[in-house]
Simulated scan of single mutants.
Amino acid sequence: MQTGKVADAQRGNWVDAFAPDWLKPYARLARWDRPIGFWLLFWPCAWALALAAVARPEAGFNLWYLLLMFVGAILMRGAGCTGNDIVDTKIDMMVARTRSRPIPSGAVTRFQAALFLVAQALISFIILVQFNSLTIVLGIASLVLVAIYPFMKRVTWWPQFFLGLAFSYGAIVGWTAQIGSFGWPPLLLYAGTILWVIGYDTIYALQDIEDDALIGVKSTARLFGSRTRPIVALFYAGAYVLWLLAAFSAGAGWLFLVGSLVPAALLAWQVWTLDANEPLNPYIRFHSNRWVGFALTLALLVEWAW
């Protein structure tokens, strides 16, 4: 079995350095060597839990739920990536950045990948049933979004929108896990997070724009073209406004407003300095979104603690 490194993984990551050889292909399939994805899936869960704490300070911030959702984010992101790679094997073989991934490189067969996908999904379900019935139903419903996303790049110029629907889902389940019902705060948070995902994944897609054009894969990066920077700026601005509305509708005040300027500044920096023609520029700006997630969580927690 091949255990070669993946081209777009950070050098010296823990999978390459420490994982046993038998585990490496599966760890790479689940993107454990590229943790940015599960952080981006996890942060909306953390935001929603913190937002619920702001709305009901007496209930506190549920650290146990935070831990469960963190592990769940790792597993579901891994399952999603595994399913995506099964579907996209032929495409990945034609793109320089992805042809070294486990399935196109031959390190893992599609059947082995399917078994690994089922295993991750089953453990994720065990985590999901720790929550209330509404959250369980919503979590199961999210599988529809996970299932259709890999096909969207073939049929629409807006696959980033469908990624946003799936990757932002924690904004809803985090709230319902703690509150037990819907409300405007999580819906506004969800809508804002969808815009955030469209923005950052458009930046991410700039890395593959030439290969995508050659093989006919659609993306918002290709759709926006030379207008990418101002359009991403609009998506980020919309995300920030909706996040503010979500927080204020939950009872947040000036402390959150001041704290939220940090993630807003990070988003502005991404757009202001974005240069698709400079190697690694989109990669670095995309990865900085983990700090956007951390900063927004911290702003909400400061508001709750106060």
Score class of each variant (00 low, 15 high):
T297H: 07
D212A: 03
L267F: 12
T297M: 09
S288G: 13
T202F: 10
A305C: 10
A205F: 12
G83F: 07
L66S: 06
L195W: 00
L143S: 14
G238L: 01
V217L: 01
E58S: 10
F131A: 12
W291N: 09
F286C: 05
R34I: 08
S249C: 03
W272D: 09
F182V: 02
L117Y: 12
W158V: 03
A295T: 00
A79V: 11
Y65R: 04
I148D: 13
V6K: 06
W306R: 09
I136L: 11
V108K: 01
T202M: 10
P150E: 10
A239G: 02
T135I: 00
S142M: 11
I148P: 14
F61L: 15
Q270L: 14
R97P: 08
S124H: 11
N289H: 08
Y283T: 02
K5D: 09
D8W: 00
L117D: 05
T202Q: 10
S124D: 08
I91Q: 01
E58Q: 11
I198E: 02
L63Q: 12
I284W: 04
A48N: 05
R31Y: 07
A53E: 00
S105F: 13
F125N: 07
L245I: 09
L242N: 02
A59T: 09
L189M: 15
T135M: 13
T228D: 00
P35T: 02
L63N: 05
F248Y: 12
T135G: 09
F286A: 07
I136A: 06
R101I: 00
L138H: 10
I231D: 00
G259M: 13
W175Y: 14
F125G: 04
K5Q: 04
K153C: 14
W64T: 13
I172C: 14
P186I: 12
R97M: 08
F18R: 04
I36H: 04
A119R: 09
F182I: 02
M1G: 03
L301P: 01
L75G: 00
L29V: 10
F162T: 06
